[in-house]
Design a protein around this nucleic acid. Structure first.
Length: 465
RNA sequence: UCCUUAGUAGCUCAGUUGGUUAGAGCGACGGACUGUUAAUCCGUAGGUCGUAGGUUCGAGCCCUACCUGGGGAGCCA
């Protein structure tokens, strides 16, 4: 047997090696043919495209051919030749086929024809083998890579903030407890509350809902940092835009004001979209054909148009002026609802919108207070179809103002001593934002349910796999 | 968590005002076909109708509760 090096299908299809002997390995997508010749569509995950393997039945054992079913894994060596048929330029004339793993056709869940997203979600361990999910997860990888590239090129440092946190002050949502205590033998204090003294950390701990506060600590000495890691929210949210475990990117920058922050957010998102268009072309074209035929148009549109920037107050005026009847009232001081945001983005401006300067009452304690005493320097980036993709703000750098806000909102000041210290010792104006990674992937892939852009989604009542 | 909608073959669905033995397409399996492209053609097998109760002479269909999925809302990224 000839020892040959394996070639990935992506490389095989993109370079002209016609006439040479090659070895490919992959999983069978389809097999068809007659008693003289069989055609095998083989995919190895390196690209959305398959290589066609042609095998003369006389040259191969009948049982081997029989075992080459959808889902089976094989290694094929043979000559790469120009295809005699339509549909592909090149194909492999197989000289030998080794069967690595059979795939019983009667019990293998995936078939050649299309499946519903719901069915594939229940088979998340196998859905990578479909064209759609192969494309989605290759793009997801490319976006993660591009994020590191972007920040690295700009001199930002990748900061690893803790996943287990002893702070629950951020208030971004319900948290998952982390404990090693025996849940059947919990110890209570005299006042009835749980006694964490015997727990692993000797105090109550949770999974993080955001790395922002720790990120600020890094920014206020390293200058510009970003986090990129998993975050957890124990909210009972059942929507196509929420996960209990999701990935978030949170840049935090010293000496950035809100405008710098908006500039960065816009440039960042556009960089990622451009990267996808330039590096994931075939996968995007597939998704454009099969999932959302406006996808490429949408991506190019966002890339080539400036985001609209208006204040919350201006947005309320626009919404009021429409005279429309809303399910939820519009009024200064009320938070904007999905229907309002959607109207602004999808009907009024027809492009991404950045809303700024929200009323302080509806925003977090750490946002910088404006001189009007009513608003804070917050920004939300709203995208068509998915709503809020980025939320950020200039942070309050003034110790007294920050402390006053913490007291006012009845937050546990003693748990935030380390955060407050940064405002006591060499405080600096700074800003940052959070980008939901899966929401970005939703937009870039055109997929409609967030459970289909993360390999193993965690949602209420679902932690399979 | 609320509203809404659905759960019938491996998959996607049909199933009439409650009435004999629950159907189709695809897939699988068997066969035919000298180059296919989600191949085509002929044939075969495959179902405790989401779960538990109830109404009825009789329930896939009506009632109650629960479970699970989809869509919308809230919370947010």
């Amino acid at each position: 047997m000839i020892i040959m090096k394996r070639t990935k299908i992506k490389a095989l299809l993109s370079t002209s090696q016609v006439g040479s002997e090659v070895l490919v390995k992959g999983w069978v997508r389809t097999k068809r043919g007659n008693k003289n010749v069989v055609f095998i569509a083989l995919n190895d995950g390196s690209t959305i495209n398959n290589i066609q393997v042609v095998a003369d039945t006389v040259s191969f054992d009948e049982n081997l051919i029989k075992d080459i079913t959808t889902g089976a894994c094989i290694a094929v060596s043979g000559k790469l030749v120009e295809s005699q048929g339509q549909g592909q330029k090149v194909e492999i004339n197989a000289s030998s086929i080794e069967l690595y793993g059979k795939s019983d056709a009667e019990t293998y869940p995936l078939q050649k024809k299309g499946h519903s997203m719901e069915f594939l979600r229940e088979n998340a361990h196998l859905r990578f083998r479909t064209n759609t999910f192969g494309a989605v997860f290759r793009i997801r990888h490319s976006m993660a890579f591009a994020i590191h590239n972007y920040f690295n090129d700009k001199g930002f440092f990748y900061l690893h903030t803790p996943i287990i946190t002893g702070s629950d002050a951020e208030g971004a949502g319900e948290m998952f407890h982390v404990t090693t205590m025996d849940l059947n033998k919990l110890v209570h204090k005299e006042d009835g509350s749980l006694d964490f003294n015997g727990d692993f950390f000797g105090k109550e701990t949770n999974l993080t809902v955001s790395g922002q506060l720790e990120g600020e600590l890094g920014a206020l000495s390293l200058g510009e940092i970003y986090t990129f890691g998993p975050t957890f929210r124990a909210e009972n949210s059942n929507t196509p835009r929420h996960l209990a475990e999701f990935w978030m990117i949170e840049p935090e920058m010293s000496f950035y004001d809100l405008n710098d922050n908006m500039d960065l957010a816009e440039e960042f998102v556009k960089y990622l979209i451009k990267y996808a268009l330039e590096n994931c072309r075939e996968d995007l074209e597939f998704l454009n054909n099969m999932i959302d035929n406006k996808l490429l148009e949408k991506l190019n549109f966002v890339l080539n148009n400036e985001f609209v920037r208006i204040t919350y107050t201006e947005a309320v005026s626009i919404l009021t002026a429409t005279g429309k009847k809303w399910d939820y009232m519009v009024g200064w001081g009320r938070d904007l609802q999905a229907e309002h945001e959607r109207y602004l983005v999808e009907e009024h401006f027809k492009r991404p919108v950045i809303l700024t300067d929200y009323p302080r009452e509806i925003k977090a304690f750490y946002m910088k207070q404006n001189e009007d005493g009513k608003t804070v320097r917050a920004m939300d980036v709203l995208f068509p179809g998915i709503g809020e993709i980025i939320g950020g703000s200039q942070r309050e750098e003034n110790y007294e103002k920050l402390l006053a806000r913490i007291t006012e909102m009845k937050l546990p000041q003693k748990d935030l001593w380390w955060y407050l210290d940064t405002r006591k010792f060499g405080t600096a104006p700074h800003s940052g934002f959070g980008l939901g990674f899966e929401r970005l992937i939703l937009f870039v892939t055109g997929m409609s349910n967030i459970r289909d852009v993360i390999p193993f989604p965690r949602t209420p009542k679902n932690a399979e796999f």
